[in-house]
Design a protein around this nucleic acid. Structure first.
Lengths: 187, 187
DNA sequence: GTCTATACTAGGATAGAC
DNA sequence: GTCTATCCTAGTATAGAC
C-alpha cells in the first residue's frame, strides 16, 4: 500500500488550485504560479489536466460544488429543526470563509472571467445555493416569494461582507453580516 | 478654440479605462484590449500614461474616487434632512451600478490585484465611504458604534447584491438589496 | 499626440526522454 | 507521473518617424 491512488494526488492538486484561484482569480494565476505552488513542472500539470488552465479552473468549480454540497447544502436539507439547520449552515459559511479572511472562489471566477463558461459554472452554484436556502426558509412557514427574497438577501450579505472585510481589514464586518443574515432568514 | 485642452482627451480615455477594468479586473485587461477599445495605438497609450498599465489603473482609481465624491459622498454631506440625504445616496448608488447590471470597479480591483497598491487604493475608498455613511447615520441620532455597524452592513448589501445580481441575472436582487440597505440605515 | 516597427518577457501549451 | 527542452503567442514596453 505504498502509493495512494492517483485520485488522492489529483485531489491535493485541486485543493492547491482552489486556493490560488480564489486569491487571485482566473487571469491572475499563471501556469508558472501553479508550478511554483505545487512543485510540479508545467508538463506534469498538463498530464493531470490535458485541457490546460481552463480545465484546472473547471476542476476547481466542481470541487467547490462538492465541498459546498457536503458542508453547507446537505446540512441545510437534513431533517430536524429548521432554525437549527440554518444556524448550522451559517456556522459552515463562517468556517468556509475563515471569518471573512479569504475570498469566495465563486465571486473571484465570476468577476475575473466575465461571461465565459467558468463564470457560468460559478453563477450556477450561487443559483442553486439560493434555491436550497429559500427552500429551508420556506419550512419556517415563510411564503415562497418572501423566502426567496430572504435567501438572496442573506447570500448578498455574505458575499458583500467578504468584500467589506477585505477592504476594512476587520473580521467584525464579517461576523456582523452573518448575524444580519441570521436575522434576515429566521426573523 | 478649435481643440479642447488635453485634459478632456485624457478624461475620455480614463472613462474607457474605467469601463474596461470594472468589467474584467486588472489582469483581465491587456494593453491590446485598451488599444482596441480606444482606437489608440500602444505608443499613444504610453504617451498618456508613461507608468504603463499600473498607472492606467491608478488613474481609474482616482477617477472613481472623484466620481464617488461628487455623486455619492457630497450629497450625503449636504445640509438638510438626513433621511432624504440617505435616500439620495441610495438613488445615486442604484444609478452608479445601473441597477446591478455592471460590476463595482473597486471590488474588481480589490479582488484581482490581491494586496498590491491598486487594491489598497480601492480599499481606502470603501473605508472612506463607510466612514462618511456612518457619520450620516449618526445624524439620525444613532450612537456612533451602531452607526458604523449599519454603514458596513448597508455597503455589504450593495456589494453582495452586485455579486448575486450577476449570478442570478435578475435586477430584482439589486433593488431588494437597496431596499434592505435603506431599512438598515434608516430604521 | 499619434503612428509603425521592434524589443523583450511572460504565459500557455507540447514533445519526448526517463 | 515527472522532468528538460522547446515552441509559439500574447503581453508589456520602448524607439523614433511623422
Amino acid at each position: 500500500m505504498a502509493h495512494p491512488p492517483t485520485l488522492d494526488a489529483r485531489h491535493q492538486l485541486v485543493v492547491k488550485l482552489y486556493e490560488l484561484f480564489r486569491q487571485r482569480g482566473y487571469e491572475g494565476v499563471s501556469i508558472g504560479d501553479i508550478s511554483d505552488a505545487t512543485g510540479l513542472g508545467r508538463s506534469s500539470l498538463y498530464h493531470h489536466f490535458p485541457g490546460g488552465k481552463e480545465a484546472m479552473a473547471e476542476a476547481v468549480i466542481a470541487f467547490t460544488r462538492d465541498a459546498l454540497e457536503a458542508k453547507v447544502l446537505a446540512p441545510l436539507r437534513a431533517s430536524g429543526d429548521s432554525l437549527a439547520r440554518i444556524d448550522t449552515m451559517l456556522a459552515a459559511v463562517t468556517d468556509l470563509y475563515a471569518s471573512g479572511s479569504v475570498p469566495c472562489v465563486l465571486a473571484a471566477l465570476l468577476s475575473t472571467n466575465a461571461d465565459g463558461p467558468l463564470a457560468q459554472g460559478a453563477a450556477q452554484i450561487l443559483v442553486d445555493w439560493t434555491a436550497e436556502l429559500a427552500a429551508a426558509v420556506e419550512q419556517l412557514g415563510v411564503p415562497p416569494e418572501d423566502a426567496r427574497r430572504r435567501a438572496r438577501a442573506a447570500l448578498a450579505l455574505v458575499q458583500g461582507a467578504l468584500v467589506m472585510t477585505r477592504a476594512l481589514r476587520d473580521p467584525v464586518a464579517f461576523h456582523d453580516a452573518i448575524e444580519a443574515a441570521r436575522q434576515t432568514l429566521e426573523q
